[in-house]
Design a protein around this nucleic acid. Structure first.
Length: 443
RNA sequence: GUGCCUAUAGCUUAAUGGUAAAGCACCGCUCUGUGGUAGCGGCGAAAAGGGUUCGAUCCCCUUUAGGCACCCCA
């Protein structure tokens, strides 16, 4: 097989082919227009950052950094990494360019590839695109709500319905340690009944134990102390106000006391937007029953939260911030599975130029250029000499008209304009051809 | 990182322990001057490596890739 003898794409990496581009274009357009309307400005940061950045921000102990990051050493010996997410990079840029002196809040958005070395699955790649926003310098719960609202608006603009917003507060440096103590005690008392995995986690990352999907554990955790009951007054107030804002803008939400996130920098609000568990595909053909959306059950389309400690952690001034991100491959897969359609954006030529003989070929090349200058999307197949083959291409391209220049026409300084549907042809003087084409295309 | 399933041409599929077949697609010819339909022809495949066997695409092992479920996550 030719495939195996030639070079293949690296595991977990994928090509976005022309027919897939209409989805990408559509999602990008909807997303960028929306955040523009909300006053966000685009920022691009490098795909490569110093490894330190992620170790310090995302967290050395997190899976993303400890297991999934692409790390390299440069010739000079610098340790660098492919970015596994972009909040750290944007925060770094915020500090590096002195954005703290910009009028606040500083509202930024980004779109670009991220890299994580995990197991590829549907909607899950080692290089994948994320789109997201960050708001710096706004401590107000309204900024949390705005972030959530923008994320919901984005998904809504793509046609998603039946979304569930899960939200929780994980407190901050002041109150989380107290909670962890209480939680650890609880887990100790139940140690014997925990699943193997939870036993390990109870020691290493107790917060994540609450995430366990094991039925027996879940039952156990019903009595577990909840973060939300251990928030200090400041945190509780903040969370309460976020919820009030969500009520105000009528965003449907679900409090999830077990929602924790895999990045260390989060404080206060954390949230996820998932497709409802019972999301079904559109009924495609008659007789074909709707099926569960493959691979997407409970998968987060959007995730985000507040990270008030991040900027100062990276050496910048103490700056509250909040943001979210979404995975584009995942979004597009969900759109396809749900039958959400996007407009076709393939290049659609309006007319086709066919020629016979070298002299005519030269003439049609000139005309081709003139058509382009006149803003008419024309196509041609100058490499083919048989008129039959050329018209076959014209037919396949679904053009309305073909312009045919044979040897005779080239000498007479005329061209044949053929309407493809009817097959009606007329001979038009060369200098009038552009006008004639324009006129026909209009009607 | 773990477990299960899968791998035949660009795509979809077939048969077979003994020369790998077809449809679609692509290219050409019939037809250097007219497409859609037709006829004819061409291109082109066993993921890689090893083992069992007289002989392996088929049976076995390893690797690779994909899917699914974990883990984790967007």
């Amino acid at each position: 097989m030719a495939k195996s003898k030639s070079v293949q794409s690296v595991k977990g990496m994928h090509d976005i082919l022309p027919e897939g581009q209409s989805y990408w274009k559509f999602v990008y357009k909807k997303g960028s227009n929306l955040v523009d309307d909300y006053g966000f400005n685009k920022i691009d940061t490098p795909i490569v950052e110093s490894s330190q950045l992620f170790l310090r921000s995302v967290g050395e102990e997190t899976d993303i950094v400890s297991k999934e990051m692409y790390n390299f050493k440069t010739r000079g010996g610098d340790e660098i990494s492919l970015r596994p997410e972009n909040t750290a990079g944007v925060a770094r840029a915020y500090i590096e360019h002195g954005m703290s002196s910009w009028p606040h809040p500083v509202k930024l958005w980004y779109w670009g590839p991220m890299f994580r070395h995990d197991q590829p699955q549907a909607g899950r790649y080692r290089q994948f695109y994320q789109f997201g926003t960050e708001i710096f310098g706004d401590d107000n719960p309204a900024a949390d709500a705005e972030s959530i609202f923008v994320a919901l608006g984005f998904l809504g603009s793509l046609g998603f319905k039946n979304l569930t917003l899960k939200i929780n507060s994980i407190g901050d440096q002041n109150c989380r340690p107290h909670y962890l103590k209480v939680l650890k005690e609880f887990l100790k008392s139940k140690a014997k009944q925990l699943c193997a995995q939870c036993k390990v986690r109870a020691k290493e990352n107790p917060l994540r134990v609450l995430d366990c999907k094991e039925e027996s554990c879940r039952a156990l955790f019903k009595e577990a102390p909840q973060l939300i009951d251990h928030l200090d007054e400041n945190c509780r107030n903040h969370f309460k106000k976020v919820i009030e804002f969500l009520d105000e803008i009528k965003a449907p939400y679900m409090l999830d006391p077990f929602l924790v996130r895999g990045l260390d920098y989060y404080t206060h609000t954390v949230f996820e937007i998932i497709l409802e568990e019972n999301a079904k595909t559109a009924e495609l053909e008659e007789g074909k029953a709707a099926t569960d959306v493959a691979g997407l059950k409970g998968l987060a389309l959007v995730a985000g939260g507040r990270y008030n400690g991040l900027v100062s952690l990276l050496g910048g001034p103490k700056t509250p911030a909040v943001g979210w991100a979404t995975g584009i491959e995942r979004i597009i897969l969900a759109m396809k599975n749900l039958g959400l359609k996007v407009p076709e954006t393939k290049s659609q030529p309006k007319i086709f130029l066919a020629q016979l003989g070298d002299f005519a070929k030269r003439k049609s090349l000139v005309l081709f250029e003139e058509l382009r200058k006149a803003g008419i999307n024309a196509s041609t197949s100058l490499g083919r000499d048989s008129i039959k083959a050329q018209l076959r291409i014209a037919n396949r391209l679904k053009v309305k008209f073909s312009v045919i220049i044979g040897h005779k026409e080239a000498i007479d300084k005329t061209a044949i304009l053929r309407e493809m549907d009817s097959g009606i042809q007329e001979i038009i003087p060369m200098e009038g051809i552009i006008e004639a084409v324009k006129k026909r295309l209009k009607s």
